[in-house]
Nucleic acid binder design. Structure first.
Length: 930
RNA sequence: GCCGGAGUGGCGGAACUGGUAGACGCGCUUGAUUCAAAAUCAAGUUCGCUCCGCGCGAGUAAGGGUUCGAGUCCCUUCUCCGGCACCA
C-alpha cells in the first residue's frame, strides 16, 4: 500500500501538535521540572520590526538557520532558549499610522499579529510564551528603569567602570553644594546637552543622520533639514570607548564586524599641544595631533568655525569676513560640507599663534574642514605632512616646510605626476626648495628633517622615535602631553516623536531635573488622538521643535511631587532603546520585580552571554554597539554577570533576486516580467535585468504564502538552507526549489513505496518499506560517514553541505527494496532539524509516540567509517595517472610496489629514474621520476 | 581616496589544516515506462583533441613565484561587492 506525501496535512498536524503539547516550552531555573545538569544554549535572532508589508522569503533565512541550530542543540542534550519578539516602536510604525489615519498601537499590533502568523507558518520552534514587544508597558517599564540607572550613574575613570552617582556625591562631600551639583550633573551617564542636530521643521522632529538625504533633505517628504543646536538627552558612550574596543577580543564575531566597530570607535594616539596666541598674554589654543613629530612644520593653525575662541582671536579688520564665514558654515549641513571636500574654504582671523617648539608666529585661520566635534576643534596645520593641510596651504599660498624626509620612490612618483625631470638628487633638491610644486604632501613615516631647537632635535629620527622624543619634551616643558583620542561621539538619545518610550524625567519650573521614582514606572504613553509631530514652517530653521507629547493632555504633562510642580520630559527615546536589552528580558519575561532574575540571568547568559546571535550586518555598528554599551553599564552596576552580551555573532547573507528596470530606470514588478530569448519584457517593452537585495524598493519580493501552497514549508526551509552557506548573499531562484522537494518526495517514497496513479485514490493502511534486518557493510559505512558529515556540518553551520550528505544517503536508499530500520531512524533524526514536520510524521510512522524534538542526535562509530581496502591515487610528478586499491593497513612500500606494478603507471615511469616518492597517508602517492 | 571581502561549468554552489577540482542540486541530452503527457526510474553532462583506449592536453579572473604537488600559500594586475570618508 502506498501513501502520498500530503505536506499540507502533515504540516498543520504537527504545528497543532507542538502547540497543544507545549513542545518547545523552555524551562529555566526556578521552574518545576527544570534540569540544571544539562548545558544551556541560548540561540537568538535579531528580532524583527513588524512592518505592514509582511514577510518575504528573504526574511526567514536567519530564522530557519537558528531554528535548525535550536532543534539540533535540543537533540544533543542542551537546554535551549530560543525566543522571538518584536521591535515595534519607531518612525516607520508612526509614519504608517499617520498615513492610514490609525493609532500606531492599533496598526502595530495588527502587524505583529500578521508577522507572528507568518513566522509560525515556518514551523519555528520558538518558546512563544516568552514573546515580548518593546511597546508593551510591562516591557518598556524596564527600558525606562535602565535609563534611570544610567542617569543615576557616573563613569569613574579610576575604576574604569560605572558607579552609582551617590558615590560621587560622597566623594565630593567637602565641596560646596553648588560645585558638587555642577560636577555631578557633568558626570552622569545620561545628561542633557545642547548639541547640533538634524532639525526638520516640516516634520517637526530631529532626524538621525541616516534619515537625511545626500542633498540635506528629509528622506521622508523631501523637506529641508537644518543643523541646529537643541537641548537633547545624551548617553555617555564615549566613557566606554576603551572597553568597547578592548572587549572585542572577548567575543567570537566576524572579523568584518569587529573591524567596523573598531573603525567606528576610531582610537588614535597623539599629543595635545598648547599654542600661545601672539599679543594675548596667557591665552593658549590647544590642538590635538597624531603627528607631534611634525610640529616644526606647523606653518599655520586652523580653528573650526564654531570654536569658542574664534571671537577672542579675530582682529577688527577680519571681524566681518570671519562672521560671514561662520554664518555660512552654520547654514551648511554636514552633508554639504562633505560634498565639497575637493575645494577648501576658510578665512584668516588676522591674529597669530606661537609655535611652542620654535617660537614661530603662524597665522590662525578658521575653516570648516576642521570639525568642532573631534579633538579640540583646532589643529596645527602641517602642510608638508598632511594632505588636507597641504591642499589648504597651496590654495591660500601658505608656507610649506618639509619636516619628514620622503622616500626616493615617493619623490619619483610625485615628480612624474607633475612632469618634473631629473635624477633622484635633483628631484629631492627641488622638493626641499619648493614642495608646493608637487601635488601631495608626504604623509608617511620617515626620518625627521628641519626639526630642531636649542633643546631638542628630531632630525634623523624615525617617526615613532621622533613622536616619543617630542612628546616627552613637550611634557617636560608643560606644553603638551600624550593623548588617546576616539572618533566615537556620545549617543544622541531623544526624539520629538510620539511612538517611543517616554523619558522618566520631570522638569521643575526652575529648570532643574527630577527623576521619576522607579516605583512609579512605567511612565506610559498618554492616549492621544493627534499624535502627529507638529509641522512648522519648513524653511524656518529657527522654528521651535514641538514634540508630539507637548500636545498630550495637561494631566499627563503636569505632575506634582512633594508640593513642587513639574512638567514631564516631552521627548521620547529612539528606536534603538528597546533593542538594547531585549535579550535579557527573554530570560525572564514576566518578572515585575526586576528586569531579569539574577539566578536565571546567570544560568542563561552563562560565561559568554548569548551563545549564538544571528542577524544582518546592517546592525554591525549601531545596535550592536549600543547594546554592548548598555550591557557594560548593567554589568558594572551588578545587574548582569557577563562583560559582553553576545558571545558569538553570525551574519546571514541577503537573499537577492532579479529586478527589472524600464527605460526610465524605474523598477517594474519582477513577477510580471516575461523572458523571451534571453531578453526580458514587461507589458511588451524590454526591461533591463539586475540583481539586488529582495524587497519592496526593487519590487522583487517573493511571497512565501504561494510557495507554502505548492511545496510546503519543509521544502521551503530546505531550499533556503540548500542555496548556499547562510553567511553569503545569493540569488533566489524559484525554479530550483523542485530539487529539494524531490528529495523529500524520495525520502517519503523510501518509506511508503512508489505511488501509482490508481492507488492514489485508495490510501488504506499504508505499509512501510522498513525491514528489521541489519544494514550490509557498505550501507553501514555510508550511514556512519553521513552521520559524521552532517554532524560536522551542524557544528560549522554549513547546512547546504549537510543536506547534500543526506541527499546522497537517500539516493543510495532509493536503489534498495527496503530500508533497514536503523538506517531509517537515523536518517529521520538527522532530517528533524531541517524538515521537522515530515520528520515528525515519519518518526511516528516508525512507531514512536513522543515527539522527535528531544530524541538523541545520532552518533557515529569511528571504526565503521573506513573499509578494509582503500583507493590510493597515483601521481607521477604531481599529475594523476591512475589509482590502485590496496588493503587499508598496507605499508608505504607495499603501496609503492602496487603502484609501480600497475601497467599504466609503469608505462609512465619506464626508462626514468625514480628520484623521490611522496606518500600521503590513505590518499595518494606521488612518484617523482625523470 | 582608505580599509575589508570575493572572483570555480549554462546556473546555485562543493573541495576542513596545500593532496583525484567541479560533491549535491537546478537546467540540459539520451533511454525506460506511457496511447500521449506529467511524475518516476536509469545513463550522461568543465572545455578541446580523439587512432574514440575516459587515451592525451588544457582548465578555478589575468600574469608571475614557492612546492614533488597550488582553487587553497606569496607578489603584481584587473573586476565585482561591502564599510568608512576632511577624525587632524
Amino acid at each position: 500500500m502506498t501513501r502520498p506525501y500530503d505536506y499540507q496535512a502533515i504540516e498543520s498536524k504537527w504545528q497543532r501538535y507542538w502547540r497543544e503539547h507545549d513542545t518547545f516550552r523552555t524551562l529555566g531555573p526556578g521552574d518545576e521540572g527544570f534540569d540544571a545538569s544539562k548545558p544551556k544554549f541560548y540561540v537568538l535572532d535579531m528580532f524583527p520590526y513588524p512592518s505592514g508589508a509582511g514577510l518575504h522569503v528573504g526574511h526567514p533565512l536567519g530564522y530557519i538557520a537558528t531554528d535548525i541550530v535550536a532543534r539540533y542543540k535540543r537533540m544533543t542534550g542542551h537546554n535551549v532558549l530560543h525566543p522571538m519578539g518584536f521591535d515595534a516602536f519607531g518612525l516607520p510604525a508612526e509614519q504608517y499610522a499617520v498615513e492610514h489615519g490609525v493609532h500606531p498601537r492599533i496598526t502595530t499590533e495588527k502587524n505583529i499579529d500578521n508577522m507572528r502568523r507568518q513566522l509560525k507558518g515556518f514551523g519555528l520552534s520558538y518558546d512563544w510564551r516568552r514573546e515580548l514587544a518593546t511597546i508593551d508597558p510591562r516591557y518598556y517599564r524596564w527600558t525606562q528603569w535602565i535609563f534611570l540607572s544610567l542617569y543615576h550613574s557616573w563613569f569613574d575613570p579610576e575604576a574604569n567602570a560605572a558607579r552609582p552617582i551617590a558615590e560621587l556625591e560622597h566623594k565630593l562631600a567637602e565641596r560646596s553644594a553648588e560645585e558638587r551639583r555642577a560636577i555631578v550633573e557633568d558626570a552622569r551617564l545620561a545628561y542633557l546637552a545642547d548639541v547640533p542636530v538634524n532639525w526638520c521643521p516640516a516634520l517637526g522632529t530631529v532626524l538621525a543622520n541616516e534619515e537625511v538625504t545626500a542633498d540635506g533633505r528629509s528622506e521622508r517628504g523631501n523637506h529641508p533639514v537644518f543643523k541646529r543646536p537643541l537641548k537633547q538627552w545624551m548617553l555617555r558612550i564615549t566613557a566606554y570607548a576603551e572597553r568597547l574596543l578592548a572587549d572585542l577580543e572577548l567575543v567570537d564575531w566576524p572579523e568584518k564586524v569587529k573591524l567596523m566597530q573598531r573603525n567606528w570607535i576610531g582610537r588614535s594616539e597623539g599629543a595635545m599641544v598648547d599654542f600661545g596666541v601672539d599679543g594675548v598674554e596667557g591665552e593658549t589654543i590647544r590642538v590635538y595631533t597624531t603627528r607631534p613629530d611634525t610640529l616644526f612644520g606647523a606653518t599655520f593653525m586652523v580653528l573650526a568655525p564654531e570654536h569658542p575662541l574664534v571671537a577672542r582671536v579675530t582682529s577688527d579688520a577680519q571681524a566681518e569676513a570671519v562672521g560671514a564665514y561662520q554664518r555660512e558654515a552654520a547654514a551648511r549641513s554636514d552633508v554639504d560640507r562633505q560634498a565639497e571636500v575637493k575645494t577648501k574654504s576658510g578665512v584668516p582671523t588676522g591674529s597669530f599663534a606661537i609655535n611652542p617648539v620654535n617660537g614661530a608666529k603662524i597665522p590662525i585661520w578658521i575653516a570648516d574642514y576642521v570639525l568642532m566635534g573631534y579633538g579640540t576643534g583646532a589643529i596645527m596645520a602641517v602642510p608638508s605632512g598632511d594632505q588636507r593641510d597641504f591642499e589648504f596651504a597651496k590654495q591660500f599660498g601658505l608656507p610649506i616646510i618639509p619636516v619628514v624626509d620622503p622616500t626616493d620612490d615617493w619623490l619619483r612618483e610625485q615628480a612624474a605626476d607633475v612632469g618634473l625631470e631629473g635624477d633622484d638628487a635633483a628631484i629631492r633638491a627641488a622638493y626641499y626648495e619648493a614642495p608646493e610644486r608637487f601635488n601631495n604632501g608626504f604623509v608617511g613615516d620617515g626620518k625627521g628633517i628641519n626639526s630642531k631647537n636649542d633643546e631638542v632635535s628630531l632630525d634623523g629620527l624615525a617617526t615613532p622615535e621622533a613622536k616619543r622624543v617630542i612628546t616627552e619634551w613637550l611634557n617636560n616643558k608643560g606644553l603638551g602631553q600624550f593623548q588617546v583620542q576616539y572618533k566615537l561621539r556620545d549617543w544622541l538619545f531623544s526624539r520629538q516623536r510620539y511612538w517611543g518610550e517616554p523619558f522618566p524625567m520631570l522638569h521643575a519650573t526652575d529648570g532643574s531635573l527630577r527623576a521619576v521614582d522607579p516605583t512609579e514606572l512605567p511612565v506610559t504613553l498618554p492616549p492621544m488622538e493627534d499624535f502627529k509631530p507638529t509641522a512648522g514652517d519648513p524653511n524656518d530653521p529657527a522654528a521651535d521643535p514641538a514634540p508630539s507629547l507637548s500636545r498630550a493632555p495637561a494631566e499627563w504633562r503636569e505632575v506634582e511631587r512633594d508640593g513642587e510642580r513639574y512638567v514631564r520630559e516631552l521627548n521620547t527615546m529612539p528606536q534603538w532603546a528597546g533593542s538594547c536589552w531585549y535579550y535579557l528580558r527573554f530570560i525572564d519575561p514576566d518578572n515585575d520585580e526586576a528586569l531579569v532574575d539574577r539566578e536565571k540571568e546567570r544560568y542563561w547568559m552563562g560565561e559568554h552571554g548569548v551563545d549564538l546571535y544571528v542577524g544582518g550586518v546592517e546592525h554591525a555598528v549601531l545596535h550592536l554597539l549600543y547594546a554592548r554599551f548598555w550591557h557594560k553599564v548593567l554589568f558594572d552596576l551588578g545587574h548582569v554577570s557577563t562583560p559582553e552580551p553576545f558571545g558569538k555573532l553570525f551574519n546571514q547573507g541577503y537573499i537577492l533576486a532579479a529586478a527589472f528596470r524600464d527605460e526610465r530606470n524605474v523598477c517594474v514588478p519582477a513577477e510580471e516580467v516575461e523572458e523571451r530569448d534571453g531578453k526580458y519584457f514587461y507589458q511588451g517593452k524590454e526591461v533591463a535585468r539586475e540583481y539586488g537585495k529582495m524587497g519592496k524598493s526593487l519590487k522583487n519580493a517573493v511571497n512565501p504564502d504561494e510557495l507554502f501552497e505548492s511545496f510546503g514549508c519543509d521544502t521551503l526551509r530546505l531550499y533556503e538552507m540548500y542555496m548556499g552557506p547562510i553567511e553569503t548573499s545569493k540569488p533566489w531562484n524559484t525554479r530550483d526549489i523542485v530539487g529539494v522537494n524531490r528529495f523529500l518526495q524520495r525520502v517519503w517514497r523510501n518509506f511508503y513505496g512508489e505511488l501509482s496513479s490508481d492507488e492514489a485514490e485508495a490510501p488504506a493502511t499504508p505499509t512501510l518499506r522498513v525491514s528489521d534486518e541489519a544494514a550490509d557493510e557498505a550501507l553501514e559505512r555510508l550511514l556512519h560517514q553521513t552521520v559524521k558529515r552532517v554532524t560536522d556540518d551542524m557544528e560549522r553551520m554549513r547546512f547546504n553541505t549537510a543536506l547534500a550528505a543526506m541527499i546522497e544517503l537517500n539516493n543510495e536508499l532509493v536503489k534498495r527494496e527496503t530500508m533497514p530500520r536503523a538506517v531509517a531512524e537515523t536518517l529521520v533524526r538527522m532530517l528533524g532539524p531541517f524538515a521537522p514536520h515530515v520528520a515528525e510524521e515519519l518518526w511516528q510512522a516508525l512507531g514512536h509516540e513522543a515527539s522527535l524534538a528531544y530524541e538523541a542526535w545520532p552518533s557515529y562509530d569511528e571504526s565503521k567509517l573506513a573499509s578494509d581496502t582503500m583507493e590510493i591515487v597515483v601521481q607521477i610528478k604531481g599529475k594523476t595517472r591512475g589509482k590502485v586499491t590496496v588493503a587499508a593497513d598496507a605499508s608505504e612500500d607495499a603501496i609503492k610496489d602496487a603502484a609501480l606494478s600497475d601497467e599504466k603507471i609503469s608505462k609512465h615511469v619506464e626508462g626514468k629514474t625514480i628520484r623521490k616518492v611522496i606518500y600521503v597517508k590513505g590518499r595518494l602517492i606521488n612518484i617523482v621520476a625523470t
